[in-house]
Amino acid sequence: MNSPLLRVKDLTIDIPVGGGTLNAVRGIDFDLNRGETLCIVGESGSGKSLTSLALMGLLGGRIKRTASQMEFDGIDLTKANSKTMRALRGDRMAMIFQEPMTSLNPAFTIGNQLMEALLLHRNVGKEAARARAIELLEKVGITAAESRLSQYPHQLSGGLRQRVMIAMALMCEPELIIADEPTTALDVTIQAQILRLLVDLGREMNMAMILITHDLGVVARVADKVAVMYAGELVETGSADQVFNAPMHPYTRGLLRCIPQPGKTERGARLGTIPGIVPNLVGGVTGCPFRTRCDHAVAACRNAIPHRKPAENHRFRCVHETGHQTAETVV
């Protein structure tokens, strides 16, 4: 693995608001290779969705994005103009959103919308595009694919719509798929099916995938790499095994204590909590953003926070060398 498909260094997103600047995302780095799945996990307001939109070049005009490096397969995305981005989007990079009903156009048939990207980006005829659409609908597990082409989005159930969204994203065989909470609006049974589908297809087509979610269960089951995001910063990154079995950052450990884990958490027992709320990101943010809610906060947390590397590919940011893991009796 010489050069990764996607390399992001020091990505920063600033949003001008009434009283100053909202430093929504501050200096995040990550690499992603072909065939890998990166899960960005965080709570609302952590900046995880903004990050995905920034990669796709879909941020609004007022929002300022800077990065010292942002490369997709050698293409410098920081310098890419809107024409280059349009050519990339839907062709080599595709996106799947949370609510398929709002991202599918209700006025056009499924077939029209599926074929659109292919007709736009590739020099193919209508017949070939149609054949490809049927092929992909079958691939995402939709029965009677041919007859579905003439249906409208409202005629499908939520799970089917999300499958159509996935098929749409796959039309041009993208190298990178960004999925923003793709299963949050779905039932648990459908969620498992859709996630399996995404993982299987990713493997089969050697796609890189960025999955954005707040659900730690989804992350653990799907991710190769995990990035835990808090208040605009990546507080911990590593393999799924590292982050879930040896979490270093106090926030990561706090999150894992918050959810009841069948078989591990005693039924009816008190769950862990993270007191307090996310800090206001307007104006300068210095030091560790988690210090206001952290059990192990010390005066040094106001200063610059060192990057620590406990193992290969495992990184976290904390003033405590081990994230103060030993101070907690239960992990």
Binding site: S157, T189, A192, R196, R221, A240, D241
Partner: peptide, 24 residues
């Protein structure tokens, strides 16, 4: 099937097959 579909935060277990097949 419902129990199978619960995604516990356990790394490396992969996404379970609920074997439910078609839609509700």
């Amino acid at each position: 099937a419902l129990l199978k579909s619960v995604l516990t935060p356990e790394a490396g277990k992969g996404v379970p097959d609920t074997e439910l097949g078609m839609e509700y």
